[in-house]
Design a protein around this nucleic acid. Structure first.
Lengths: 189, 189
DNA sequence: CTGATTATTTGATCCTGATCAATGTTATAG
DNA sequence: CTATAACATTGATCAGGATCAAATAATCAG
């Protein structure tokens, strides 16, 4: 059950066997049904998820009720509403399993406790933050430098899995366009 | 000269006097003229800047030569193209002083060396990364959830200094709209 | 101070992607 | 399996900003 997580961690930092066990013991299984919402806007941020199997979608809900997708997380990646997780504040976005998913989560207190007890965990967190920052900045760059068609083409090139695996509707939302617009882009009109 | 920087650091982490001096000794003065470009796309990322006085603008250059502003940094903030700084890779954006500026910079090697020599510097970096992530994510949120008028109104509310201090042209570019559109938004048409 | 450059405003037109609507296609629950 | 709902496609129209153009206004270098 925790092989993927173990690999993810040990690929990034060195840990003694005891430290590794302590880290792993903080993670718990959560099985989510398709479309189940596992983090809701307004709740306090409590957990960080590792996706073992399935896919998570993190999205804002606009005042008019429409959604805006910030990111997807597939297998072997971590996902949390980091902005809220950092301060333990209220979530500003929902997290939803868009496929039946198998997740390993760690509670916020445990996560931060590890920072004090496991020397190299700070390094793990640093790498996590750096990666999260890079991904986010690249996404911001896409929005301020590319038009919808270019964004789609870039996504198809850099992240074909997302286009192939997810329904059009969600891909369009991720690109911040309507599904009609995406349909037309795909058909090349 | 280094009072502001000293305050910035000691407000965030605890350092012995010796450690503080070691940190400060890594920072060097750079005076930049208005419109001077102090970091150019394609160069290796070498420096991180602390703005003592003035203002920096970080922007992408699109294939057609137009610019897209990612961020501004005013007094008492750090600025670098973090995405490139992290890996020491080539810059993907320019950094320009939009006002006559007084900067303190630290070289990349020195910055990362401090991570190994000064125990609390890792904590400083963590805070820096967290802040940078939060700011970026909030900006991404603005783009995927708000229209141009709403983005302007939010900016005026949360960051009035930017609207008051910078030329319209730059504010418009930051909002990813034309200066004509911003002019019309401001005049309330 | 002054001429030249750069920024701002305003108007007219255009174009991209949103919206609305209808039809066809897949998934999915029971 | 089948009924129903969710998703995808296609067409027609609309609207918000971009673009182009011209007239002021503000800066700045010399």
């Amino acid at each position: 059950m925790q092989e993927q997580l173990t690999k993810f961690i040990t690929d990034r930092i060195q840990l003694t066997e005891a430290d590794l066990q302590q880290v792993l013991s903080c993670f718990h299984l959560l099985v989510a049904k398709k479309n189940e919402i596992i983090g809701r806007t307004g709740e306090p941020s409590r957990r960080m998820f590792f996706v073992n199997k399935g896919c998570l979608r993190v999205y804002y809900i606009k005042p008019d009720g429409r959604e805006a997708t910030r990111r997807f997380a597939f297998e072997n990646s971590f996902s949390t509403s980091l902005t809220s997780f950092i301060g333990g504040t209220l979530l500003k976005e929902d997290t939803q399993a868009v496929e039946p998913s198998q997740l390993l989560y760690i509670n916020r207190e445990d996560f931060y406790r590890l920072l004090n007890t496991i020397p190299n965990w700070e390094k793990f967190y640093r790498g996590f933050l750096e990666q999260a920052y890079i991904i986010n900045t690249s996404r911001l760059e896409d929005f301020i430098t590319l038009n919808p068609r270019e964004r789609y083409q870039l996504l198809l090139k850099e992240n074909p899995e997302m286009v192939l695996r997810l329904p059009n509707k969600l891909v369009a939302n991720y690109l911040n366009i309507t599904q009609e617009a995406l349909s037309r882009i795909k058909s090349g009109s």
